[in-house]
Amino acid sequence: MLRMEFNRIVTRPIFWLIIVAGFALALIPVINTWPRGVTDDYYVFYPRNPYISWMFFVGSTYYIYSLVFPLLASLAYSDTYAEDVNTGLIKNILTKVEKKKYLLIRYTVNFCVGGFVAVFPLVINFLGEMAAYPLIENNFYFGMNPVSRISFWPDLFYNYPLLYVIVRVTLLFLLGGVLASLGLALSTIVKNRYIVLIFPFLVVMGIDVLTSTMGQHSITVLFLGIVGASWELFIYLFVGLIGSFIWYYVLGDKNETV
């Protein structure tokens, strides 16, 4: 079934459209910040590396990326369960695969695809910045200080910057996966594919607005901003992951499909 899922992903036009959009979001900041007409001395006085040039800190398209992040995560694959049920394809699949296995594989694949599509622009942008700037060390006192002392794990950023990038990308991958899973879980009760796809976006916007009202950091700021790390990050991921899985698995199993 995994091979079938893979074939299905690569034949979905929407997946490739999101990848193209991801390339655009990632490469526009690279083109904007590409070094032009600089001498060797330039880097002595104004050192710059891919870590501080990464769109996560200075990207011109980053605001748009952070706005559409939940939609990117859900759009790639979240509506497949609803699609299977609406078209009757699920009946064909379930004659060959056990239902619980189908639900598990669908959840895992959707989680991975959602996460991958969500972090794709960040990864491509970092690779683009690596092509533009040398991988020199970060120096807090020499103008390379996008992460302040009260931001997310500053020691990691200044001592092991590549690890910092990996941690941030991993957290966003998990958030993308959780958001995609929320859409998938909703499709067990709502068969309208459009509603399924925009549900994660509305959830994020709703929680963002409510948390901002209470004076707390919103999900978008926690994950896509550079505010200090807090337990909320892991609570959101844990609740989202477990909640969406139980919701999807229990209701999906109960749904009469054949």
């Binding site: 929407i14 459209l17 959009a21 011109s60 605001y63 748009i64 706005l67 559409v68 939609l71 990117l72 859900s74 759009l75 459009y194 796809l197 925009i198 976006f201």
Partner: peptide, 18 residues
Amino acid sequence: SGALIMIILIGLAGLDQT
């Protein structure tokens, strides 16, 4: 896809805000 239309419109709104 309605969701894709929404991405485009929100992207345009975000571009305005920047």
